[in-house]
Design a protein around this nucleic acid. Sequence first.
DNA 1: CGGCATACCTGCAAGC
DNA 2: TGCTTGCAGGTATGCC
Length: 293
Amino acid sequence: MPELPEVETVRRGLAPAMEGARIDRLEQRRPDLRFPLPARFGARLEGRTILSVKRRAKYLLIELDDGAVLISHLGMSGSFRVEEDAPLGRFHHARGKQARHDHIVFHVDGPAGAVRVVYNDPRRFGFMALAAGRSLETHPLMRDLGMEPTGNHLNAEALARRFAGKTAPLKAALLDQRIIAGLGNIYVCEALWRARLSPRRRAGTLVNARGAPVARLETLVHAVRQVIAAAIEAGGSSLRDHRQTNGALGYFQHRFNAYDREGQPCGHTGCSGTIKRIVQSGRSTFYCPACQR
DNA sequence: CGGCATACCTGCAAGC
DNA sequence: TGCTTGCAGGTATGCC
């Protein structure tokens, strides 16, 4: 599912239910997701209080009161939902039709009351790890991540340094989490469309001989920042799996200009081109060959 | 090292 | 209807 805007939407849904809450019980229904879950996972979480729910790139970071951090990645199909944790009793038989692929359930009790936070992941490309907070930045999952596309982290000068000499196409360079962390297939296609840049153009062509950004790299930076901000504002894009933690759909998919629009007219004013689908490094790219150069 | 293909796993839609 | 094929928002790994 999820690129940065979807993960940020999940974070915003989890925070009110989890921050300040105690983990009373962990239900772990299988030993692994994409990778084995941490050893003694339940024992290490039960009884802990959650200090905060943060995000880095496409990772959720759940900080615990003993200094540990639960790192969670949703892969392609992972989702969290928050449900009322109704007490089990004679009159509550309806509690549990357990949805397929609900792998982990956090029973937490905090400012928002007793809730279940359920992790569901049909394809099991997601994964969870536990890190010591003091070494979070050097954790193997974190240490190679590049700039956040939000705030002031992403800027043309820094991007130029990373693009200089690169022969990889822009599509691949923007998907590279070591350069900008958090973009995925949808938002790379959308940002390139907005910047009218071809996904096939070599990344190094946006850097001049002195290693400084050319004007079109500035345009790309603005496009990335704007599309990510707009998608967060919309609660992300709901294609197959992504929902907000309360079950609501995101609606940025209605604002796609390129992604999954093969054969449709390009929406740029004055362009009579048609969106085309190509495959780059094994993944679909959608763009307008007429105006994206 | 850079660039690319492949593997991981399940579900769904399209085509025959 | 039922089967096969291809495709899906991501990352790690291995090969040239």
